[in-house]
Design a protein around this nucleic acid. Structure first.
Lengths: 149, 149
DNA sequence: ACAAAAAAAGACAATTATATCTGTTTATAT
DNA sequence: ATATAAACAGATATAATTGTCTTTTTTTGT
C-alpha cells in the first residue's frame, strides 16, 4: 500500500520515538541496521523528514537523529504526507475523480469505511501514542531481533 | 492503492460485463474512449487478461472483446492477481515479513479487519455480481458521461 | 479470393521509484 | 585550534511502471 520509502520513514520515526531523545541521538547507520533498510536511501528520507520538522538532527561527532518533544506530537499522517503524499488514501480506489457517496464507483462502499478508520488512526493518534503502545504491547518495528521460536 | 494498469483492467472488465456479450463484441478503441484511458496501454492489458481467460476476444472485422458466461464467474481478485499481483493486499502494511496476529506491527490491528473485508468482497463476489449491482444501483465506472448538475 | 478490420506481438520511449556514490558543511570532543 | 564524526547536498545508476509505435496475424464481409 505504502511505498518502500514511506515504510522506512514511518519505521524510522517509531524507532527513534522509542530509542532516542535529545540527549541520545542515533546515526543513520545504526537506524538502517536496526530496521534492515538501505542506508543511503534512508539517509535521504531522514533529510526530507528533517526539513519538515518530523525528526530532529544535529551534525558532528556524537550527533545523529532523534525525536524532540514536539516531534512526538506529530501524526503518522504527517509522515505519509511528507514522503508519499496522501492521494492514495483520499482518492478513489478505481481512479474516478467524481467518486463519492453520491456517485459511488463499484467498490466505493467496500473501501470507504476502511479509509475512514485508517485516516482516523493515522491522523488523530500521535507518534507518542504509537510509541507507547509499542512499548506496552511489544509491537514489532524491526525484523532484526526476530527469532522463530 | 491499485496501479493505474489494474484500475484500467478492472474498469474494462466491468464495462464489458455490462455492455458486451458473445454476440456483441467491443473494440479497444471504443473501450478506451468510454473509460478515458490510454488506448495502446489498455490494449496491452486486455491481451494479458485474455491470456488468463479473464476476457474473451475475436480478431477480424466486427471482432473485439467481450465477456463470456464463464468470464463473468471470475472475481475482481483474479484481475488483480493477473495485473498487479496481490502482495499489497496480503503483505504487512509496514513491510514486515513476520507481521501477523502473534507478532503484530504497530498498525496491524488497524489494518487487518479491513484487509479481511476487502479480500472477501474481491474474492467471493463475481464480476457478474458487481455488474448486477452496477446496473441496479447505477454505480459509475466511467467519467465520460458525468455531468456536474 | 480479397480487402479491411481488428487483436496480437514486440520493440521502443518517458517517467517515477528505488537506491548508490561522492563530496561539502557543521558541530563536537580533544 | 584541529581532527573527526556526522548530517547535508547533489549527481548518478537501476528497475519498474506507464505509455507509444510498428508490424504481424487472424477473421470476416464482400
Amino acid at each position: 500500500m505504502l511505498s518502500n520509502a514511506c515504510k522506512y520513514a514511518i519505521r524510522s520515526i517509531l524507532y527513534l520515538a522509542i530509542h532516542s531523545d535529545d540527549s541520545k541521538k542515533i546515526g543513520v547507520k545504526k537506524i538502517a541496521e536496526e530496521l534492515e533498510s538501505p542506508q543511503p536511501f534512508l539517509a535521504k528520507l531522514l533529510q526530507q523528514l528533517s526539513k519538515k520538522n518530523l525528526v530532529s538532527s544535529v551534525k558532528g561527532p556524537s550527533g545523529g537523529f532523534y525525536l524532540s518533544k514536539s516531534n512526538l506530537e506529530n501524526s503518522v499522517w504527517n509522515t505519509i504526507e511528507c514522503i508519499d503524499g496522501t492521494d492514495k488514501f483520499t482518492k478513489c480506489f478505481m481512479g474516478l475523480s467524481s467518486c463519492g457517496d453520491e456517485n459511488p464507483c463499484p467498490v466505493h462502499f467496500t473501501v470507504a469505511p476502511f479509509k475512514q478508520k485508517i485516516l482516523h488512526d493515522f491522523k488523530d493518534r500521535t507518534i507518542r501514542d504509537f510509541a507507547e503502545e509499542i512499548k506496552l504491547k511489544g509491537r514489532r518495528i524491526s525484523l532484526k531481533d526476530f527469532e522463530v521460536t
